[in-house]
Each structure stands twice: as structure tokens, then as C-alpha cells.
Design a protein around this nucleic acid. Sequence first.
DNA 1: CCCTAACGGAATGGATCGTTCCGTTCAAGG
DNA 2: CCTTGAACGGAACGATCCATTCCGTTAGGG
Lengths: 208, 208
Amino acid sequence: MPSLSGRRAEAARNDRTILEAAREVFLRDPTAPMSAVADAAHVGIGALYRRYASKDDLLRTLCGNGLTQFVAIAEQAATVDDPWDAFAGYITAIVEADVHSLTVRLAGTFTTTAELSTLAGRASTLGTALFTRALDAGALRGDLQPNDVTMVFEQLAAIRLDDAGRTAALRRRYLTLLLDALRPAAAATPLPGTAPTPAELGERWRRE
Amino acid sequence: MPSLSGRRAEAARNDRTILEAAREVFLRDPTAPMSAVADAAHVGIGALYRRYASKDDLLRTLCGNGLTQFVAIAEQAATVDDPWDAFAGYITAIVEADVHSLTVRLAGTFTTTAELSTLAGRASTLGTALFTRALDAGALRGDLQPNDVTMVFEQLAAIRLDDAGRTAALRRRYLTLLLDALRPAAAATPLPGTAPTPAELGERWRRE
DNA sequence: CCCTAACGGAATGGATCGTTCCGTTCAAGG
DNA sequence: CCTTGAACGGAACGATCCATTCCGTTAGGG
């Protein structure tokens, strides 16, 4: 099946392996050293630098992939008819793919590019649309704001154990709790304060 | 008023200033260098090492204070008659004092002592008692477990902006949401999975 | 059988940090 | 006053960690 063999096949395989290893490693620890990625990929450090000019470059690639995945998930969710199902499906998929850790949480550790900012803007627009649609349909508490969703992601991303499977299971548990909490309820206590502003959240995307 | 003056008064003042500065600094960043504490306290590094034999020593002190504060809050809450009010008051006070960041989140960064472990055990017992009382009184969802509370703390501790005031306000906002979510509700979706085990959570307290 | 793409990983250079050390300051006591 | 030592500030030291470079090795492809 593979049109390549031998050395060239190894290289192609490594392209994937390295990206996957990097994803896993930096998901676990955004400050991990390059050597950790090399170890995880069972590859020498040289193999990394043959593909990426620098650590920042690798991080940017990872972040770009995460953002792309985010956009894809949001676009897919937008095709769902029921506003709540669309919204809930979007949130669930983002959390399960750990996209938040891959984007926002990584964004502080390298210098952003205009392209990434643009992608981030698109992701934000799509997320807000899903939120607004659900809110207008009365499927969400009236005192919620779009950026509250970001904070939900942030809170769920904070759940992390050594074991990846357990981490996923726990996130499902608290995601269930939080999704219920976002729905309108007669007994709901009004939320105090306001959601964070884009400026408060966006400091991580500041360029240079 | 002060029975001391001059140099001795400065020293006594510094005792407090240094502890407060350390608290703030390590709350913001658990990996901050000692020099950051010195700067925040407007004090030389020497003044730190005159009081604490090492960074670990300072961290342990901070953690011990946090644990003590935790125990005090829990004991105080236990005197409240209504089980839900006791529980909710306890959670709220812990979150507002940022005790979780001061204890569990710091615990990974230094070598624990038996004394700290003991204190942690007491804190845990008290917290579980408050939880159980509320659960038995029917004030909590039946599918909750004691360690779910720890995860609530963990999630709220993840909310942190540069501005301390905003951080506190946002935590109040999401604490309100979460407290509502913990109450029994007819429409509640059953929580999948189980809360983390003590072993899963306790790895941070392992000694030596 | 010889290139050369691709690899592995030791070596380099810079940055960060905990901790030590020493010269300075200043108030209390003689 | 002058001596003394507690308390200070912060430069300097030594260890560690890391991104990145460099070069000798390997093994398909021609």
C-alpha cells in the first residue's frame, strides 16, 4: 500500500509519529522540553529539527492543528438542527478532543502569528454563534454570556490525572454536571458578576 | 504601641511582610523563584534565608498555614445548623481564601513531612463529614461522592486572571453555577463514572 | 558500490535559580 | 560617643536545565 519503502517510509512514518508524540507530551505538560518529545516518539532530537526550525515552530504547528480541529468541530455542530443539541455536542466534542489545552493553554508559550490569530478569531465567531443560537432558543440560562463557555473549557481542562483514560472519564463526569448547570432552571441562583471580556482572555494571543 | 522599635521592629514587620508576599507570589505562580518573593516583599534575599532554611521550608510553612486555615474553616462550618448552609458556606470560604491553591497545588513542589500529611488527613476528614451530612439530609445530588468536592475546588482554582479582584469575582460567578449544580434536581442527568479515588488524588502528598 | 537523505545523540552556550557570603547599616548599651 | 552584633541587601557561585547545533553513522536508491 505505501508507495514508499525503506528510509523514505521511515521518514514519512516519523512525520506522523513525531506530531502525535508532541501532541501528547505538550498536552500533559505545556513546558516539556524538546527531548521529551524525541523520547516519546522514539526518535533522535535531530529528527525533530529536520522538520521544525524551532520549538516555537513545532508549538505553532500544534496550535494551528488544534485551532483547525476546533473550527471543524464547530462547523460540524452548526449543522445540527436542535440548538441545544448543537451547542451541547460542540462543547462535548471540544472537551473530548482536549482542544482547549492544545490552543489557548499553549498560546502563552510561544510567539503567535497573524495567521493563528485569524484562525482563533474564526473559532471564536463560530463558538459564539452556537452559543447565541442556543440562548435565543431558550435552551440556556438567560444570564450566561458567550465567554462563560471559554471558562467552562478552562475549568474542564484543569482536570488532569496521570492516566489519560481516567482523565477523560472524569471530564465526562463534570461536563455532565456543568451542561446541566447551563440549562435554564426555575431554582437557579442568578449569576453574580460578568463573564471575562475578550481583552481579559485575549492577553494570551498577543503577538510578539 | 509596638513594644519594639528600630531594627527589631523592622524585623518583626518583615516576618509578616515576607509571609504575605510569599503567599501572593506562589499563589500566582507555584514555581516562582525565591527572588520573586524577595522583590514582592521589598526585601533582600538574605532576609528570606535568615527566616527559612530553604525554599522548601518556606513552601512547607505556607502549605501548613493553608492546611490550618482549611481546618479552621471546616470546623467553623461544622457548627452551622442547616446541613446545606454548612456545606455551601464551607465551599465558599475555601474558594474565597484560595486555600486549595495553597495546599494541594503547592504540595507537588516540595517534599512533604509527616506533620503535613496528618494535617491533610484531618482536613479531609472534616470535609467529608460536611459532605456526608449534606448528602444524608438530601441537600445534595445522590450520585455525588466526597471527592467530587475536591474536583470542584480544582476546577475553580484553575480560574485565574492577572487581576486578583477579577479572579475572585469570576470564581464567585462559577461557584454559584456549580453550587446550584450540586443540589438535587428533577431534570438532572445521572453523572457518569466515579469521583477520583484518594489514591488518584493523593499522589501529590507522597512523602520524600 | 558509491551517494546522500535521514538518523541519533553528544556537545555547546546561554539562561535560570537556589543558596552562600560578605560588606553595610543602625540601634542599643556601656 | 563608640562598640557591637542583629538584620539587611544583593552580588557571586555552582548546579541544572534546555534549545539548538554538529557531526559521525546508516542504509536505501541509483
